[in-house]
Amino acid sequence: MRWKQVEQKPKVFALIFETGDEIAAELKQFAKEQGLGGSSFKAIGALSHAKLGWFNWEAKKYEPASVLNEQIELLSLIGDIALKDGEPQVHAHLVVGRKDGTAHGGHLLEAHVRPTCELILTESPAHLEKKIDPESGLALIQI
């Protein structure tokens, strides 16, 4: 992954992922290295693999919904980064398009880039922290 800071206030970064990069892991590492807490991002590109999830309310956890091991278009990736127990956590949803024109969407569990993913990340003015919500069991942003 290559990156460049394109604005100072608020901080805005352009991140360019390359073939083989796994988006969620590299984005989390980038946020940690840059000291980013509350941030939002959007991206487009293409992937060779995506694992999409959905939130199982009864089990209170994300479960795999579909796994796509083929060349797919990353039509939309949006999400946020917030601190949970002092560590940045990536929460994102994506929609991908298959060769036949069908779309699949869900919670980002894993996505491998091929050949590129162009992501714009904007830091929020105030850091956001996630805390466990007792009803859902999820780490949710607290304002």
Rank of each mutant, 00 (worst) to 15 (best):
M1K: 08
R2G: 14
K4N: 13
K4S: 14
Q5K: 03
Q8A: 15
Q8H: 07
P10F: 01
P10R: 07
K11D: 03
K11P: 00
V12W: 14
L15W: 02
L15G: 04
I16V: 13
F17T: 13
E18T: 07
E18S: 13
E18C: 02
G20P: 08
G20F: 10
I23T: 05
A24E: 01
A24W: 01
L27N: 02
Q29R: 15
Q29E: 15
Q29F: 09
A31E: 07
A31Q: 04
A31F: 12
K32M: 12
E33Y: 00
G35K: 09
L36M: 11
S39G: 03
S39P: 03
S39H: 04
S39D: 05
S39C: 06
S40V: 04
S40Q: 15
A43R: 02
I44W: 03
I44V: 11
I44P: 04
I44K: 14
G45H: 04
A46P: 02
A46Q: 10
L47Y: 07
S48K: 10
H49W: 14
H49N: 09
K51I: 04
G53I: 12
G53C: 13
W54A: 05
E58R: 14
A59G: 01
A59V: 07
A59W: 02
K60L: 05
K60T: 01
K61N: 12
Y62W: 14
Y62E: 07
Y62L: 13
E63L: 10
A65T: 13
S66I: 13
V67R: 09
L68P: 09
N69E: 15
N69S: 08
E70D: 14
Q71W: 05
E73R: 06
L77K: 06
I78Q: 08
G79V: 11
G79T: 04
D80N: 14
D80C: 10
I81E: 14
A82E: 04
L83A: 00
L83C: 00
L83G: 00
K84I: 01
G86P: 02
E87W: 11
E87C: 02
P88F: 04
Q89S: 06
Q89L: 02
V90Y: 02
V90K: 01
V90F: 01
H91N: 12
L94A: 06
V95W: 10
V95A: 12
V96Q: 12
V96K: 14
V96S: 11
V96M: 09
R98L: 09
K99R: 07
D100N: 01
D100G: 01
G101Y: 13
G101S: 08
T102M: 09
A103K: 13
H104W: 03
G106C: 10
E110Q: 15
E110I: 07
A111I: 00
V113D: 09
V113T: 12
R114A: 08
R114K: 06
C117W: 03
C117S: 03
E118S: 09
I120C: 00
T122S: 10
E123V: 06
E123A: 07
E123S: 11
E123Q: 15
S124P: 07
S124M: 15
A126P: 02
H127R: 10
E129K: 01
K130P: 01
K130F: 00
D133A: 01
P134Q: 03
E135N: 05
S136L: 14
S136Y: 10
G137W: 11
G137N: 10
L138N: 10
L140I: 08
I141V: 14
Q142W: 03
